[in-house]
Amino acid sequence: MSERPLILVTNDDGITAPGIRMLIEIMNTIGDVIVVAPDSPQSGMGHAITVNNVLHCNPTTVDDGPQIEYSCSGTPADCVKMAKHEILNRTPDLCVSGINHGANSSINVIYSGTMSAAVEAGMEGIPAIGFSLLDFAWNADFRAAKEYVKKIALNVLLNGLPDGVVLNVNIPKLKEEEIKGVRICRQANGVWKESFDKRKSPFGKEYYWLSGEFVNNDKGLDTDIWALENGYISVVPVQFDMTAHHAIQKLNTWDL
């Protein structure tokens, strides 16, 4: 490229989360960084967008650096829309989302605000990557993944991505010397075995806490879950065309 790439950074944990601060630091070594991120945590929002309320998006400064930052009242997908259509004067060369505090492997990709921001960017024609670390702690240590995050981002800038594809990158909770490398994977066939913890408030009103246990039904050695359990960073190419192409022939046999 004749000029430094323009990189959009967003997340779902909020603009002050340590994960996005580390991602901003890494991206500053690669290109010109614009941050548009939620002003509060938006985990589990999936691809929700704001349609029945106003959006606020204001310049802010969280810490020192050359990046330009905006804090948005909306969801991760809203942040990408605002960046593309209201804030930026050219299409970013790359969008990176994260680094998420917690896994977005297997079926979790469906619920993830981190990955939905990346998917929204992909839908807007921007090469995009979602990064997640398998550590939910606010003070999680993201340093072990720095060089891998940078290398994956540089490869996307250099090589591009297939049309309709974004990357879902998950990083094991390991020290740098313990990470074995990167594996290109498929999404594991896993589900959440869910339940609701029913309780009563001091005023006698019933309320619920969603809880659950993740169940991996996939014993394949080419999945993101296998890679993460065996010390590798998993990279899954994700498509946002949700058509089940393999089912079309079968459905065409129905008497409709």
Rank of each mutant, 00 (worst) to 15 (best):
G130P: 07
V109Y: 12
L134I: 04
N28C: 10
L154S: 08
L8P: 09
P92A: 02
L210V: 00
M27L: 05
I171H: 00
V166Y: 07
A77M: 05
N189D: 14
W138Q: 10
G125W: 04
S43M: 11
S2L: 12
V96N: 01
A144M: 01
S211C: 11
S73A: 01
M1H: 11
A153H: 05
K146W: 02
P18G: 07
L161M: 13
G19C: 02
Q187L: 14
T16R: 10
S132V: 09
D222R: 00
Y208I: 03
T253G: 11
H85P: 02
N155P: 03
L133I: 05
Y207H: 02
N53I: 03
D141P: 07
E213C: 06
K198D: 11
L174Y: 04
A145Y: 01
K198G: 02
D163T: 13
N216D: 13
I126C: 04
K205W: 03
V119Q: 02
L161T: 11
D224V: 07
R199T: 03
P172Q: 04
G65F: 12
A37W: 11
L221N: 12
L133S: 00
N139W: 08
L158Q: 13
I7V: 15
G44F: 00
V9I: 14
A144S: 15
N11V: 07
F203H: 08
I171V: 09
D63E: 14
W226G: 09
S43T: 13
G98I: 07
D93N: 11
L158K: 12
I24R: 11
P66C: 06
T50G: 05
V238M: 12
L251I: 13
A144C: 09
L221F: 11
V54C: 08
E194Y: 03
H246A: 07
M82P: 00
I233S: 08
K150G: 07
T223A: 00
N11K: 03
K219R: 08
D218F: 03
P127E: 02
A137S: 14
K150S: 12
D141E: 12
F203W: 09
M82D: 01
G44S: 04
V51P: 00
N104I: 14
M123Q: 15
V235F: 08
H56T: 15
L133W: 04
N252T: 09
S132Y: 05
Q187Y: 07
Y232A: 05
L94I: 09
E177V: 13
C185S: 13
